[in-house]
Design a protein around this nucleic acid. Sequence first.
DNA 1: ATGGTCGTCCAACGA
Length: 257
Amino acid sequence: MRLATWNVNSLKARQDRVDEWLGYCDVDVVCLQETKMANEQFPHDRFMDLGYHSVHVGEGRWNGVAILSREPLDDVHHSFADGLDPDQEARLITATTAGVCVTSVYVPNGRAVDDDHYKYKLAWLDRLHDHIDAVAAPSNDVLVAGDFNVAPADIDVWDTTKTSGGTHVTKPERDALARLYDWGLTDVFREHHQEPGLFSWWDYRGGAFHKREGMRIDLLLTSTSLTEASTFSLVDRTARKGKLPSDHAPVFLDVTR
DNA sequence: ATGGTCGTCCAACGA
């Protein structure tokens, strides 16, 4: 089984690239982020024609997350299942497919460490932990994948002097990831690659992609059973090249049983 | 030379 996550930075602007990508990557389950689309606009029929069931939660102009799967998607949660008020923004969707509890996440950016949005980001990550705990158990097959807007370690940024003092690399953000690890999830890409210089996002400006100046902020977190069955993980740099790319590349994970 | 690009949609703002 091949799993993937991709922040497409507007599905409207990216539909042709997404269709092309689905045509070559032979993926079974995809978590999408930043569809920037209202629910009634989401192209369920188009994805069905390409062989994928889909679930989506969107709000229109910003955010929006989806899951595509070759198998049906059941037990859908369109926001946090922690029993508190629903999130104002469309940043999380959970469904069960092919025996895996899959959650697609678009973690708030945070903007700046002195911004209220950074507080929202930390609170959101805490709620994500409680959500996962509510919908799954560590002994299940669990995938939490998406744009976390957190670089898990210094190896995940191109130059720590350039990112120091900003969001994405602070201790509270990384501590929030550690809480998910403590629950039983693993940043599975790093189980397969230990070398530096492997990123999933590059700023559109200044030729950052070609200078290899990026961050690895798109993560697949897997429970132990999936981690142990995983055989291969890859950043699909091809999808970041060419005409009208997203600023994020997809990340793949293969699980073989 | 102190910006540099996109996407949302036409003015800025978010990333």
